[in-house]
Simulated assay, not measured.
Amino acid sequence: MRRGGRNAGIVADQPAHGSPRAGRPDPLRGLRGLSSVALTAAVSNAGGLGAYGLYGYSPERISATAAELRAATDRPVLLNLWVIDETDAAPDGAEPGAELLERVRPIFAELGVEVPTPPERYLPRFADQVDAVLEARPAAAGFVFGAPDPAAIDRLRDAGIVLVGTATTVEEAIALEGAGMDAIIASGAEAGGHRVSFLRPAEESLVGTFALVPQVADAVSVPVIAAGGVADGRGVAAAMLLGAEGVQVGSALLATSESAAPESYRRAISSERSRRTILTRASSGRLGRAIPNRMTEEVGEDPAPFPVQNWLTGAFRRVAAERDDAELMTLWCGQAGPLSELTDAASLVRRLAQQADELLSPVGV
Score class of each variant (00 low, 15 high):
V216F: 01
E245K: 13
V216C: 00
S271E: 11
A238N: 13
S274G: 05
S197Q: 03
G233H: 11
R234P: 11
V216G: 02
P223R: 06
A191V: 10
A202L: 07
P262N: 09
A260F: 07
A202W: 07
P201E: 13
Q215F: 04
Q248C: 11
F210E: 06
A239F: 08
V216W: 04
A260M: 11
F198H: 14
G235S: 11
L206N: 00
G250M: 09
G233P: 12
R195G: 00
S259I: 08
E203R: 14
H194I: 05
G208I: 00
A252G: 12
V222P: 01
A202G: 04
G228R: 02
A260P: 11
S259E: 11
R200N: 09
A268M: 08
A191I: 05
R267M: 10
Y265W: 10
T256N: 03
E204S: 13
S205W: 03
A239I: 12
L242G: 00
A261Q: 13
G193H: 10
G228Q: 08
V213F: 06
D218F: 05
E258N: 03
E272S: 14
L206C: 04
A260W: 06
L199I: 15
T209C: 03
L253W: 15
A238E: 12
R273T: 14
A231W: 09
G229N: 07
L199W: 09
L242Q: 12
A219H: 07
A237K: 02
A260I: 01
S221Y: 00
L199C: 07
L242T: 01
P262A: 07
G243N: 05
L199P: 00
E263T: 07
T209L: 02
V249L: 13
P201F: 07
S251V: 11
A237T: 08
S271H: 05
A261F: 04
E245S: 15
L212F: 00
A252S: 13
A202I: 10
A227S: 15
V213H: 03
P223Y: 05
L206R: 10
V230F: 11
L253D: 12
R195A: 03
S197K: 00
A227Y: 04
V236K: 01
S271I: 10
F210M: 15
G208Q: 03
V247K: 07
G193R: 10
S221V: 10
S271N: 02
